[in-house]
Simulated assay, not measured.
Amino acid sequence: MDSRNEIFETLREALVELFELEPERISLDANLYEDLEIDSIDAVDLIDHLKRQTGKKIAAEDFKSVRTVSDVVEAVHRLTHPETA
């Protein structure tokens, strides 16, 4: 996953696969909790899935301020590209 767009596509696939969401509901400005109805347990599952996809350890603390799909994309981008963070 190099670009933010690739991260978004991977994230969208994960949300569809893990939580059976319709792909058209998933946009960068979609709120995870309000729009997509992701709860805290779902968030842990998502973090675990992203960890397997990226090969990077993702701390739950890194996701405390995450609210939107775009926030997740940025957090994953920072983890996979620390030189640009």
Rank of each mutant, 00 (worst) to 15 (best):
M1T: 07
S3L: 13
E6L: 08
I7E: 10
I7T: 01
E9A: 15
E9G: 15
E9P: 12
E9T: 15
T10H: 15
E13Q: 11
A14W: 12
L15M: 09
V16Y: 08
V16S: 06
E17C: 12
L18D: 03
F19M: 05
E20K: 12
P23G: 05
P23Y: 05
R25H: 10
R25F: 08
I26W: 03
I26P: 04
I26R: 06
S27Q: 12
S27V: 05
S27K: 10
L28Q: 07
L28F: 13
L28D: 03
D29K: 10
A30G: 07
N31G: 11
L32W: 01
L32C: 04
Y33D: 09
E34S: 07
E34M: 04
E34N: 10
D35E: 11
D35M: 03
L36Q: 11
L36C: 02
D39R: 02
D39I: 06
I41R: 03
A43T: 13
V44F: 06
L46E: 06
L46I: 07
I47H: 03
D48Y: 12
D48I: 11
L50C: 04
Q53R: 05
T54V: 10
G55M: 09
K56D: 04
I58D: 05
A60M: 13
A60Q: 12
A60L: 07
F63Y: 11
K64A: 04
K64H: 08
S65F: 10
V66E: 04
V66Y: 01
R67Y: 13
R67C: 15
R67L: 14
V69H: 00
V69F: 01
D71R: 00
D71I: 02
V72I: 11
V72K: 00
E74V: 01
A75I: 00
A75R: 04
V76L: 05
H77E: 07
L79M: 06
L79V: 02
H81Y: 09
E83D: 09
A85D: 14
A85P: 01
